[in-house]
């Protein structure tokens, strides 16, 4: 016995309800935009009040290194998207070794590796800068640089943890369903967002200087 009405008109179009998890994630990422707005505001204000610190500070940057690191992060967004395509066809695992046969798990492991390389690159860059006496407490330039890139780095690290949790979920189920695909999709939203924020930071900090 069912309590559902059976008299639904046959001509009525099928309406898919919005995915609440996906919409909620986007609204939350909207609030993250404002979090980074605060950091950008700090950066621009300090840069306009003490331009001489920026002239001295940006000299120690290794821009080609940062550009390579940026490229790796941007490409990791591409691999994350291929993972989402696999999740959307409900394919968790590979059916062969060729990338066209990869499932969500393989693509997300690759994305994880690239994101981890980015974080390692950033830690290496921090070590170089500290050896050049640019630190969080050295001056306004150091504070602005480490606050903006540091909070971004923490977001990347959080995304890496999220990828591991989604991969773990895919391993823990016998049948990969839309529910699991949703968590893969929202983690990819977050990853693309963090990627776009980094493109903004890279342009402002390394290109615009």
């Amino acid at each position: 016995m069912t309590s559902t009405s059976l008299s639904r008109s046959l001509t009525a179009p099928t309406i898919n309800r919005p995915n609440i998890v996906a919409v909620g994630t986007i609204v939350w990422l909207g609030s993250e935009v404002m979090f980074f707005a605060g950091l950008f505001a700090i950066y621009f204000t300090l840069r306009s009040t003490s331009p001489e610190l920026w002239e001295a500070g940006t000299e120690v940057f290794n821009v080609p290194f940062a550009a390579v690191n940026t490229t790796i992060l941007v490409l990791s967004s591409v691999t994350a998207q291929f993972g989402v395509f696999a999740a959307e066809r409900l394919q968790a695992r590979r059916t062969g070794w060729k990338p066209t046969q990869w499932g969500m798990i393989e693509w997300f492991f690759l994305t994880y590796a690239m994101g981890a390389v980015f974080v390692i690159g950033q830690v290496y860059e921090y070590a170089i800068l500290v050896s050049e006496h640019v630190s969080l407490t050295s001056d306004a330039f150091g504070s602005a640089f480490y606050l903006t890139t540091g909070f971004h780095g923490l977001h990347v690290t959080g995304g890496l943890i999220a990828f591991l949790l989604v991969i773990g979920r895919a391993y823990s189920v016998k049948v990969f369903t839309h529910r699991d695909a949703t968590s893969a999709i929202v983690v990819s939203y977050y990853w693309h967002f963090v990627d776009v924020v980094w493109i903004g930071l890279f342009l402002v900090i390394y290109v615009l200087q």
């Binding site: 935009v33 404002m34 980074f36 707005a37 605060g38 950008f40 505001a41 621009f44 204000t45 306009s48």
Partner: peptide, 10 residues
């Protein structure tokens, strides 16, 4: 910059 960045990103 604070207002410009904050309102712009709104």
């Amino acid at each position: 910059w604070v207002g410009t960045v904050a309102i712009g990103l709104c």
